[in-house]
Computed example of a mutant assay.
Amino acid sequence: SRFVASQMTPEIIDTMNVNLQQNNVDFRASGSKVKFAGFTKVYKRGKEKDNLLPELKEGDSAQMVSDDPAQHFTQPPARYTEAALIKTLEENGVGRPSTYAPTLDTIQRRYYVRLVSRHFEPTELGEIVNTIIEKQFPDIVNAKFTADVEDKLDQIEEGKQNWVRVVDSFYQPFSKEVSTAESEVAKIEMKDELAGMDCDICGAPMVVKMGRYGKFYACSRFPECRNTKAIVKDTGIPCPKCGQGTVVERKSKKNRVFYGCSRYPDCDFVSWDKPIGRNCPKDGHFLVEKKIKGGTQVVCPNGDYEEEPQK
């Protein structure tokens, strides 16, 4: 359904906002109506309800039936998804279609970010690296610089720019910044955090270390003792498949969060969305909690049941 929807015409919605004033108090009413269903005929993102308003013109009087004294707070921008990040790169003229996939792969492989519910979240390592390069290379770490360099490279290809001059104009100031950074920036050591448990093999304290795929438990006597353990977050929810283990939060090699059974490999239960410990009233399948724009929603993975979104 999603594939078919991607080939269809967008949905068209008519919106209407009305401002009313009474005794120096402002009221606002808003309404919407689906004018053309488009792709939502085959792929619905959630419950869509028409909220119709009557035809109004300036100076009309209206009678209040009910009011909703809701206070709306400004929400921070949503975290980037892979698609949103690529769209932003395109809008800023950064990169090309052939470089988008390697860019997304690099920032995850170096553990600058991790995917949590399909959204990128910066890691501790990513924030440290970003702080350093913003301080040491302020002219380079910005979208305009990258877009300008790519534009000059296009001009070189077309014979409008001399590549030696372009490279030299970049390299001369950049080499000085690199020399300054090498002398001023001290090596940053990530201090090991005590894990609060002892090694199963030698009895030494276990510590939290940073690895290629994120944090993990390791013996403090490394390299004498090479005992390691994955860090998992136990949700306390019974496994929907075996009922004996509990659902734990794990990470894939691409740092994407998923949920599995604590009894793995004896139980191979796995889910990208977090189970909530209840079953679907329609087909008995376990329900999961999906993150949507502005909140979460409990749904059945089979698509035949969903609850009202929670903010």
Score class of each variant (00 low, 15 high):
P10A: 00
I13A: 02
D14P: 12
N19H: 10
N19G: 06
Q21G: 09
A29Q: 05
S30P: 14
S30R: 06
S32R: 13
K33H: 13
F36P: 07
F39W: 07
K41V: 15
Y43F: 10
Y43H: 07
R45D: 15
K47W: 10
K49D: 15
D50K: 01
L52R: 08
L52T: 10
E55F: 07
L56Q: 05
K57C: 09
E58T: 09
S61N: 12
Q63A: 11
D67S: 13
A70P: 15
Q71Y: 04
E82H: 01
A83S: 15
A84C: 10
L85R: 02
L85N: 03
N92D: 04
V94Q: 04
R96H: 12
S98E: 00
Y100R: 01
L104E: 02
D105M: 06
L115I: 10
V116E: 14
H119A: 10
F120W: 00
E121W: 05
T123Y: 02
E124S: 15
L125E: 07
V129G: 04
N130L: 12
I133T: 09
I133P: 14
E134C: 14
K144L: 13
T146E: 05
A147D: 13
E150V: 09
L153H: 12
K160R: 14
K160I: 12
N162A: 09
V164W: 03
V166N: 04
D168N: 12
F170I: 07
F170D: 03
Y171F: 15
T180Y: 06
A181P: 15
E182L: 13
S183G: 10
S183A: 11
V185C: 06
V185A: 02
K187I: 12
I188P: 09
A195Y: 01
M197L: 14
C199H: 01
I201S: 14
C202W: 02
G203Q: 02
A204W: 01
V207N: 01
G214F: 06
G214S: 05
F216M: 00
P223F: 01
N227W: 04
N227F: 14
N227D: 12
V232P: 04
K233H: 13
T235C: 02
K241A: 12
Q244N: 08
S252V: 03
K254Y: 08
K254T: 15
N255G: 08
R256V: 15
V257I: 11
F258V: 03
Y259T: 05
G260E: 00
R263Q: 13
D268H: 11
D268R: 13
S271M: 01
S271F: 00
S271T: 08
W272D: 12
W272K: 06
I276C: 09
G277L: 03
L287P: 12
E289D: 05
K290F: 05
I292V: 14
I292Y: 00
I292A: 07
K293R: 11
K293S: 15
G294V: 09
G295F: 02
T296W: 08
V298E: 02
V299E: 01
C300T: 09
C300N: 08
P301Y: 00
P301I: 02
G303H: 03
Y305G: 04
E307R: 01
E307Q: 03
E308L: 04
Q310K: 11
